[in-house]
């Protein structure tokens, strides 16, 4: 197999495994790990797009002219994308901490059920205290 086939297969594989973990798994942490896998797959694809056979890393050495280099642009984009992914991941974990504190479970269906219960309980009453209504 050529390098290209391996890289593309790896990227698509990571992406699909991640999608599976996000859609089919019922545990919130696993969903988040799936998201990380999806992001890795897409980042790998982006780097692979800039690959050139027998090309140097895009750093100039002293006294050397720019020869054949891999495309530096996707590398810069991936750096940005990784940091963005990290920020989103940190926020997701912070939310998971609070969800777990509130509901005591990380099962997605259970959390969804408890959320519905909470909304229905708070729905009609939410405006109550503020409006001072009596019924």
């Amino acid at each position: 197999m050529s390098t290209g086939a391996v890289l593309y297969a790896g990227a698509i594989g990571l992406f699909l495994i991640g999608c599976y973990a996000m859609v089919a798994e019922r545990h919130l942490i696993r969903n988040i790990l799936g998201l990380v896998l999806v992001e890795s797959g897409v980042n790998l694809l982006l780097v692979a797009v800039g690959f050139r056979e027998n090309a140097a890393a895009p750093i100039l050495k002293a006294g050397q002219s720019a020869g054949m280099m891999v495309d530096p642009l996707p590398q810069a984009l991936v750096l940005t994308a990784i940091v963005i992914g990290f920020g989103v991941l940190a926020l997701a974990l912070a939310l998971v901490v609070r969800v777990h504190q509130a509901y005591g479970t990380l099962d997605t269906r259970e959390v969804a059920r408890l959320m519905r219960v909470e909304r229905e309980a708070s729905g009609p009453g939410a405006a109550g205290p503020r409006a001072g209504a009596k019924s």
Binding site: M22, L28, N31, I32, L35, V88, L91, A92, L95, V96, R98, V99, A102, Y103, V111, A112, L114, M115, E118, R119, S122
Partner: peptide, 14 residues
């Protein structure tokens, strides 16, 4: 600040 808000935000985020 409600628990349902955290849960909804997390699902939205994913």
């Amino acid at each position: 600040g409600s628990a349902a808000g955290f849960g909804a935000s997390l699902r939205y985020l994913l």
